[in-house]
């Protein structure tokens, strides 16, 4: 579904992303972890056909993002970190507008809008202006907007950061359901719980590079925590993440001092 090979993105003198290679199959989920400025958002924008790669290739469902970014954007649902909603529109009108942009038939989009408002418990607030919505409600609307057209690939940047635990679980269930329907997911998050819950593969990024990509078991093995630490329980993803990023920073510090 998504094939990224040697992806790099440069903004002037800033190399925001370098040599990223990942593959996400239909119905699977890749979670990207990393501190702020690690290059996760840039990676998502390149995967979504919003920004063109400076080097490397991005292919979504067989379409090269550099050759036909418009077609790639039609296949993708991107949920940015900030919801970016029109304040003076009701949620129904807002979702209808984006449904029309994605060429969803009017009758189908009306039906889907009602279904998804129901899923996210927004039916009663459907005619209120978005400006009156809470942060969590806005995030729900952004998730609905990104998935309304049934994209083949959903790219979400911190999709549940503003949601209460109950709503977050509801969102995870929804994303899992999309996966079951064959949709591929790429999620950027700082929540280890979310990563453990959703991820098939996990990518750990730092300073524009992917330090490690693989399943939980592979990352555990790679972190060396299972052999170095005498623990009764398996290390959590939080332990693995800190170990891998910590090692990377030690390497960076050694390189600088040398």
């Amino acid at each position: 579904m998504l094939e990224v090979d040697g992806l790099a993105k440069r903004y002037g003198e800033v190399l925001a992303l370098r040599d990223l290679t990942v593959r996400v199959d239909e119905g699977s989920c890749l979670v990207l972890l990393g501190r702020n400025g690690a290059g996760k958002t840039t990676a998502l924008r390149c995967m979504a056909g919003v920004l063109l790669p400076s080097a490397g290739t991005v292919t979504v469902d067989g379409v090269d993002a550099a050759d036909d970014p418009t077609a790639v954007r039609a296949k993708v649902g991107l949920m940015p970190e900030v919801p970016g909603l029109y304040e003076r529109m009701s949620v129904r009108a807002y979702l209808d507008h984006f449904g029309a942009i994605y060429d969803v038939e009017p009758a189908i989009r009306r039906q889907r809008i009602e279904e998804l408002l129901e899923v996210f418990e927004l039916t009663d607030a459907g005619d209120r202006w978005l400006g009156t919505y809470s942060k969590g409600m806005r995030q729900k609307v952004a998730l609905i907007r990104a998935t309304l057209h049934r994209p083949r690939l959903v790219l979400a940047d911190e999709p549940t950061s503003a949601l209460d635990p109950d709503s977050a679980r509801r969102a995870w269930v929804y994303l899992k359901d999309l996966q079951k329907e064959g949709c591929a997911l790429v999620i950027c998050t700082h929540s280890m719980e979310e990563a453990e819950h959703l991820a098939g593969d996990i990518g750990i990024m730092s300073a524009g590079r992917a330090l490690a990509i693989g399943s939980m078991a592979e990352l555990r093995r790679r972190s060396g925590l299972a052999t170095r630490r005498e623990v009764r329980e398996l290390p959590t993803l939080q332990d693995i993440y800190l170990a891998i990023v910590g090692n990377h920073h030690d390497e960076l510090a050694e390189t600088r001092s040398a």
Binding site: V76, L78, V82, Y102
Partner: peptide, 14 residues
């Protein structure tokens, strides 16, 4: 400024 343009730019609109 309100980041709604970013959303618009992520759609298939040219």
């Amino acid at each position: 400024e309100r980041t709604t343009l970013e959303v618009l730019l992520s759609t298939p609109l040219r």
